[in-house]
Design a protein around this nucleic acid. Structure first.
Lengths: 259, 259
DNA sequence: CGATGATTTGACACCCCTCAAACAAAGTGG
DNA sequence: CCACTTTGTTTGAGGGGTGTCAAATCATCG
């Protein structure tokens, strides 16, 4: 695996991609609170570098004490823990607009790894810049807290899925979740999005074996709920899929609170 | 179920229990950061009422917008979600010293329920008092953030357990986790603590059926790892249990960070 | 002493895992 | 351009972990 701290990579894409990050990150954060032009400018300015990271690279090592925050601009990444027996469990998927906040440094070291699953375009924000951002822009601070709480809420929903739903419904539920989250940043329609993960990644997310993952996916195809070809996922019957998966998007908190 | 908002309950125990909460809550929060005498006094003063709540009472309804924070002083409570089919999945256990922070109100409504599992003594802290506490006492604010991050980290560890560990190791892991967390607030020795939950509560926590829960527990007893009688859990061989469960307490972040 | 809730045990079915192997696609080097 | 490797996908067979159904036992309590 290649770490993104490789100096040959750093900063290579500054300028060219300058506008891309704010777009997708802002789309996400503005689900939490309206941001002013000043907030947006500060956010864009806080990004130190854009980096292109190959698939399956480690962004944050388990037991690291990271000094940089990351925002995913393009591609899929994940939080994971690796067991002694080599089994990997993915504990969260990071989509474009999601961020990894080294606020975790309060804890005295990351207790999980962060890695890319596909090639990613990543915006790096230094911890000090992030702290300043929070102090000087309360609306951004609020939005970041919202993001953290939403992550926790999503983790709880995954616990519910792993604890109570059979593999098929679990996959269906994940498909619904990704549709909602990707649509929130403009990367999915009601019925279609790009899902560039391998069966193995999905299996490690759903807590099932690769073999069973394949069978479960076929079942969803055979029952006419989805089509999945060339990494493009098409939902054939959204309403029926949501019922089947027992999906209720409330836990994603994608609609801005009244306050 | 009886809600604690019942006026006959409110405030009944003020004074008598006045010192109990700070003790256990402070023991927990001081794992995050040292607190000054001023912080402690402010924390104690912020508690509006102590309430005795019977077992199986709902503290926060799913879809509520709670205006009160709770700190558990005695007893066990939980976060949970209930599926359409009636299956309950417990997503977090709240032990003495743990708190439920209505900070979740940023999200515009709770997305899960909070309920007592045993009879509990609960300290209620109004949302405004909590906000003031955070503003005027940065060390408390930091400690509360630490608590939130630790909860998220624990949720991730539960995902790992549900996704990768068989039921027996999952139970063993939970036993280790509870030992560490209870010891941190003075309610467990290295080998012994009170675990006042029913098999059903534990089954709903581990994501297995009540019947299987029973078998798995017997297995741990038969292999000489634990004794569990009269709600008292005794760990016969802590080292062997931790190896069996693949338990690494790092995710609990119970040792204060250097910073 | 009957009612209720908690624990225990047995039988059987099914979900899902493991092992194994075949197959496809994409890169790599000769 | 073709062997060859690597990575990802698909399929089959068999076994084990768990769920469900059913019923017995036990404890607590009014």
């Amino acid at each position: 695996m290649i770490g993104i701290s490789d100096p040959r990579m750093a900063g290579r894409f500054m300028g060219a991609q300058d506008g891309a990050m704010p777009s997708v990150l802002l789309m996400r954060l503005e689900h939490a609170a309206a941001l002013g032009p000043c907030d947006r400018a500060a956010l864009a300015a806080a990004v130190s570098t854009f980096e292109r990271v190959p698939a399956r690279s480690v962004l944050v090592q388990e037991a690291d004490r990271p000094r940089t925050g990351y925002a995913i601009v393009e591609g899929f990444a994940c939080h994971y823990r690796q067991g002694r027996d080599g089994k990997r469990q993915i504990t969260a998927l990071l989509l474009p607009g999601d961020l990894y906040d080294p606020q975790a440094s309060i804890l005295g070291g990351a207790d999980y790894g962060v890695a890319t699953l596909t090639g990613c375009l990543v915006a790096a924000i230094g911890a000090p810049a992030l702290e300043r951002l929070k102090l000087e822009h309360p609306r951004i601070a609020r939005a970041l807290t919202w993001a953290l709480l939403t992550e926790a809420s999503t983790a709880r929903e995954w616990i519910v899925g792993l604890g109570t739903r059979p593999a098929g419904k679990r996959f269906a539920h994940l498909i619904c979740e990704l549709q909602a989250r990707l649509q929130a940043v403009g990367l999915a329609s009601e019925t279609r999005y790009r899902l560039p993960l391998t069966w193995e990644d999905l299996a490690d997310t759903l807590g099932i074996s690769l073999v069973h993952m394949n069978r479960v996916a076929q079942e969803l195809r055979d029952t006419g709920l989805i089509i999945f070809r060339d990494k493009i996922l098409t939902i054939e019957d959204p309403a029926r899929l949501r019922v089947f998966a027992d999906f209720n998007p409330a836990y994603l908190h994608l609609t801005p609170p009244a306050a």
